[in-house]
Simulated scan of single mutants.
Amino acid sequence: MKINQIRNATIVVEYAGKKFLIDPMLAGKGAYPPFPHSPLQENNPLHNLPMSIEDIIKDIDAVIVTHLHEDHWDDTAKEVLPKEIKLFVQNEEDAEQTRNDGFLNVEIMTNETVFEGIQLIKTQGEHGRGEYVKLLGHVSGVVFKHQDEKTLYLAGDTVWYRGVQEEIDMHKPAVIIVNSGANQFVELESGPIIMDKEDIYEVHKAAPEATIICVHMEAVNHWGLSRETLKNFVKDKGFLPQVLIPADGEAYSI
């Protein structure tokens, strides 16, 4: 497999001969207003794409949208992606919205979804703790399985909680992609809405042999964990060899 970090949660996964675009946020730097009540009052996204949109979407076989928040599914993605492309979503509500956006080949992921011989298993997640869980709505991740590939678990916008432990125990992934920016809103006291460094440490303890790839970092105005801070943390904890923290545009073959 090959994992290419684009920006934020937007990545391209090449798996068993197919190319998946995950959670596309494709607008140029500063295209959208800042998320309110956030540490930084800067327009989103904070950085330009590391490559052209044409290069990002070239030869994409399918798109997976874990949920419909703007930093995972933005207006630019809706405009530039072919309306006939295969689009996987988490539930009927998201399917209805993406069909309203004009997409013609929308499918809801389940535990038994198969695309071109690749098993796609929808996974659970919680977008924060306390009041955030209800406020931010349903989210999902996905496990990729194929006889010729290592099992890949993309956790999506979730914190560490029993559901993530259950997915790891069930699927025993060799590679885990985690959204790692510790993003949060300053007016609430429920903590980050995606994984922070301690959550990532829990992922490692649950799957000590797995390669962990940390994405969704330093890209939107409510981020709370830098790549440098995370690198120093995992080094201090002694599991840096198992962790990859890609820069925008960086790719790994695993």
Rank of each mutant, 00 (worst) to 15 (best):
98 T>E: 04
120 L>Q: 09
62 A>G: 12
116 E>N: 13
33 P>N: 14
22 I>D: 00
31 A>I: 00
11 I>Y: 01
71 D>N: 12
93 E>G: 14
56 I>T: 11
27 A>H: 01
64 I>W: 08
114 V>Y: 07
45 P>N: 05
11 I>S: 00
108 I>S: 01
78 K>V: 09
122 K>L: 12
24 P>W: 09
111 N>E: 13
61 D>E: 12
14 E>H: 11
101 D>N: 06
21 L>R: 00
51 M>L: 14
62 A>Q: 14
46 L>F: 05
52 S>G: 15
58 K>Y: 12
96 E>H: 15
118 I>N: 14
69 H>T: 10
26 L>S: 08
103 F>C: 07
35 F>R: 10
69 H>E: 03
61 D>V: 11
44 N>R: 05
67 H>Y: 08
122 K>Q: 12
75 D>R: 11
75 D>Q: 11
94 D>W: 07
8 N>H: 10
27 A>V: 00
32 Y>V: 05
35 F>I: 13
68 L>R: 14
36 P>V: 05
89 V>H: 06
107 E>W: 03
121 I>T: 11
130 G>P: 02
25 M>L: 12
33 P>W: 06
36 P>R: 02
94 D>S: 13
74 D>P: 08
28 G>C: 06
117 G>V: 07
77 A>P: 06
68 L>E: 04
111 N>V: 11
100 N>E: 15
126 E>R: 11
64 I>V: 14
21 L>M: 08
13 V>Q: 11
125 G>W: 13
134 K>M: 06
91 N>C: 04
93 E>A: 15
71 D>C: 10
126 E>K: 12
65 V>S: 07
65 V>I: 13
50 P>E: 01
35 F>E: 04
95 A>F: 03
31 A>C: 05
122 K>I: 13
55 D>K: 14
94 D>N: 08
82 P>N: 08
84 E>V: 02
117 G>S: 06
53 I>N: 06
36 P>L: 10
36 P>D: 02
90 Q>F: 02
25 M>Y: 03
65 V>F: 02
57 I>W: 09
71 D>S: 13
18 K>W: 05
119 Q>L: 06
25 M>D: 06
115 F>C: 03
73 W>G: 09
